[in-house]
Write a protein that binds this DNA or RNA. Structure first.
Lengths: 151, 151
DNA sequence: CCTAAAATATTATCCTATAACAGTTTCGAA
DNA sequence: TTCGAAACTGTTATAGGATAATATTTTAGG
């Protein structure tokens, strides 16, 4: 595992801890362990993958346990759902944002998150033209990553 | 129902018919009826909604019947899947395209499709920076549409 | 300590989607 | 004109993803 990923993950956990303290949310075992599992994975994990991993650290967990933790972290911006994969990844941005952008390698399954604070102009124009008020968005770009492309 | 929608729908069916003739695909009852159902709906429909509607025009259809028709029209660019809703809508663009953009009203459920031939520059830059080769993408913008916003 | 709120545990079930295989339709070549 | 391969549908069963409902536990604060 790369040092960068180790650090990032440690950061996510630290941030989560501070966040919970600050907002008086409980950093319970299910929440902590689920975030750890998602945060240490190099690839998006399905809920039942998470459930399986979770079974190694807490006794006999059931789907709602996982889904509740997922919902919690998602609401607070620490993880994202990759809709086209029914899977979850840790947020790489380090703060809440209205929009998510992912590049998803169809070869190796890796996901790269990129950050944008606003909708790009052509899209903003489009919402304006339709008098549509955006609240959040999600962009999933499928393709082939650099590593896989070189084979 | 608005005239514009009626026309669009008739167009979709005509286009589909020509397309099938041209490419020697069979415009079978399940395919035709499923496209009609999706094309005449003003909102995205789940597969089991479609199944229910389909049951009114063909005898006792089963899920694979619907999913096969969905897959067919999706592959050929006539319908799109709204990932965040597990639902399907007719394509409004009238031709195949690599990317889809939707505005989804969280109030009334309406979906507006907008067309872009290319990824907007900030995103293209992002893929370039990561040496990522995009093949297709999907953007889903949630928010409130003009009609709902005025209430 | 006690209690109300927050969170979890447990059971059951719903919704979405597909695998596997048998049967049918279609069209072109012999 | 029929026969055989390919395309397509029918049917059964089940996999995979998510949540409703209710009981129980944990926790912070009065």
């Amino acid at each position: 595992m790369l040092a960068g990923q180790m650090n990032m993950n440690a950061n996510v956990l630290k941030q989560a801890q501070s966040y919970c303290e600050e907002h008086k949310y409980r950093l319970t075992q299910p929440r902590l362990q689920v975030l750890k599992i998602i945060g240490t994975s190099t690839k998006p994990l399905g809920a039942y993958d998470i459930l399986e991993e979770l079974g190694k650290v807490i006794a006999n967990p059931k789907p709602p346990t996982v889904y509740r933790a997922i919902e919690f972290w998602q609401q607070h911006g620490f993880i994202h759902r990759i809709e086209s994969l029914n899977a979850y990844v840790a947020c790489e941005a380090g703060h809440q944002h209205k929009g998510s952008q992912f590049m998803i390698c169809d070869d190796c399954g890796a996901v790269i998150e990129t950050h944008l604070c606003e909708l790009p102009k052509p899209l903003k124009d489009s919402t304006a033209k339709n008098t549509f008020t955006p609240s959040r968005w999600n962009l999933e770009i499928h393709g082939v990553c650099a590593a896989c492309d070189s084979y």
